[in-house]
């Protein structure tokens, strides 16, 4: 698995995404997190994240998803103070990470995945995500990526 070519969203899609209001996207994202990940995150990890805001910037979509951890749940957050962590990457790379098609360190070494903020929490999040086995979700993502891959 060599580092795959950088794949950006088609420009019209990015332009469209930029026009969508931010908060509904964050609401949808937080809901998705609660559905897929919350119960698989150990309580002690959620406690370490408690009260903090996190940002996931999807660079080619011009979108930044903001969420916080409150009461061991993921909740949408409005733009507020500087988040504890901000991830920056393109949509394709996020999807490849979630599908376990890409190695986070490799993307990081290549500056395709930029992490700003608290490094220890970033590693905690990375390692926790690595411990989570959701083969069905990952399989679906993987198939979607293959179907969408430009030839």
């Amino acid at each position: 698995m060599s580092a795959p070519a950088l794949r950006r969203l088609p420009r019209p899609v990015g332009a469209l995404a930029r026009r969508l209001p931010r908060l509904p996207a964050s609401v949808a994202f937080a809901t998705a997190l609660n559905l897929t990940l919350r119960r698989r995150f150990p309580a002690e990890v959620l406690d370490r994240l408690e009260g903090h805001t996190f940002a996931i910037a999807v660079e080619d979509a011009g979108v930044e998803l903001l969420f916080a951890v409150r009461g061991r749940r993921f909740a949408p957050a409005a733009r507020a103070a500087e988040p504890l962590l901000r991830f920056r990457a393109v949509a394709w790379d996020y999807a490849a990470l979630a599908a376990r098609e890409a190695d986070p360190d490799t993307l990081f070494f290549n500056r395709r995945l930029v992490v700003e903020g608290d490094t220890e929490i970033a590693l905690l999040v990375k390692n926790t995500l690595d411990t989570i086995d959701i083969p069905r979700t990952r399989g679906l993502l993987r198939r979607a990526l293959r179907a969408l891959a430009p030839r």
């Binding site: 376990r100 098609e101 890409a102 190695d103 360190d105 490799t106 690595d130």
Partner: peptide, 10 residues
């Protein structure tokens, strides 16, 4: 051991 499952797989 600090690397991802994708690394270990490859």
């Amino acid at each position: 051991r600090q690397r991802s499952p994708v690394y270990v797989q490859t």
